[in-house]
Simulated assay, not measured.
Amino acid sequence: MASKLAGTVALVTGASSGIGSATARHLAEHGAAVALVARRKNRLADVAAEIERSGGAALAVEADVSDRAQAEAAVGQTIQRFGRLDVVINNAGLMLLGPVAGADALEWDRMIGVNVNGLLNTTHAALPHLLAAAEDGPRGVADIVNVSSVAGRNASEGFGVYNLTKFGVNGFTESLRQEVTRRHVRVGVIEPGAVNTELGSHNSGAIQSQIIDPFNASLETLSPDDIAESIGYMVTRPRHAAIGELWIMPTEQLT
């Protein structure tokens, strides 16, 4: 694979598994040094070691990006280690499903904390470095990709607060894109459909068996590599081309 990201540094949140770890590996294959950010230190270390065995450069950063100070520290550690930041993939996410009536409001707080506040915290800390990279970096451009969902396009019963967070991600992405695109920081959103990851595993057994498992069994789901390759496509376009929105779902998925 051509080293389209040689000389650049990428930061990926939620990098300990699924889409995040696959994306970190993929960006490293493109030549980027990668900071992997997540809460599960051992899993991060395994992914970082795998990247380094393949000849890449990786930094494992244990952090909960829903905490602003930890998100800022993760960006700071990346700059301290690699000296710059060119690409941010806001992937950390949580999906807790169920009806609004009788819901556990603490689950709402957790989702908003990760899906919204985590993205905002990381973006706020990273943006000055991305603007600098766009001015003096090897590509003359920097990238933010926010991992949303088809749930940011279409609302469904039982997905209420998850829908809220992902619709919010889409709106924030477009607003920020308009703010910084003329400074050559590209801001895009990717909206996956059903992907075979651990995302649904935090739900109750009833939600898992009644909603998630039957849906996933009804079609051929995407793999994390499918999403990683799509993110790689977004951030390796020529300087003059920006992918603002990429909607990717299983061929058999209707909504």
Rank of each mutant, 00 (worst) to 15 (best):
M1H: 08
A2E: 14
G7N: 12
V9W: 00
L11Q: 06
L11H: 02
A15K: 02
G18F: 11
G18L: 09
A22H: 07
A22S: 14
A22T: 08
A24I: 02
R25G: 00
H26G: 05
L27G: 02
A28N: 05
E29W: 01
E29H: 06
E29N: 12
G31R: 07
A33L: 05
V37H: 01
V37K: 00
R43E: 15
R43C: 04
R43F: 08
A45H: 10
E50F: 02
I51N: 01
E52S: 13
A57S: 15
A57F: 05
A58G: 10
V61M: 00
V61E: 00
A63F: 00
V65Q: 03
R68S: 11
G76T: 09
T78S: 10
Q80K: 15
L85Q: 06
D86F: 03
D86I: 01
V87D: 00
V87C: 02
V88L: 03
A92N: 05
L96D: 09
P99C: 05
A101N: 11
A101C: 08
G102Q: 09
R110G: 04
M111W: 02
M111N: 01
G113F: 12
G118S: 10
L119D: 01
L120R: 09
L120F: 15
N121F: 00
T123F: 02
A125Y: 02
L127A: 06
A134Q: 04
A134P: 02
R139Y: 03
A142D: 01
A142T: 05
A142H: 06
A142L: 06
A142W: 07
I144Q: 00
V145G: 02
V145L: 07
G152K: 03
N154W: 12
N154S: 13
S156G: 08
S156Q: 14
F159S: 14
V161E: 04
L164M: 15
T165E: 04
N170M: 12
N170V: 11
G171V: 11
T173W: 02
E174L: 11
S175V: 15
V180Q: 09
T181V: 15
H184F: 15
V185I: 12
V185E: 01
G188K: 10
E191D: 14
G193Y: 07
E198P: 07
H202W: 06
N203R: 12
G205I: 11
Q208N: 12
Q210N: 14
N216K: 13
S218F: 07
I231H: 05
G232V: 10
M234P: 10
P238M: 03
L246V: 09
W247S: 10
W247D: 13
T251A: 13
E252Y: 08
Q253D: 12
Q253A: 10
L254N: 11
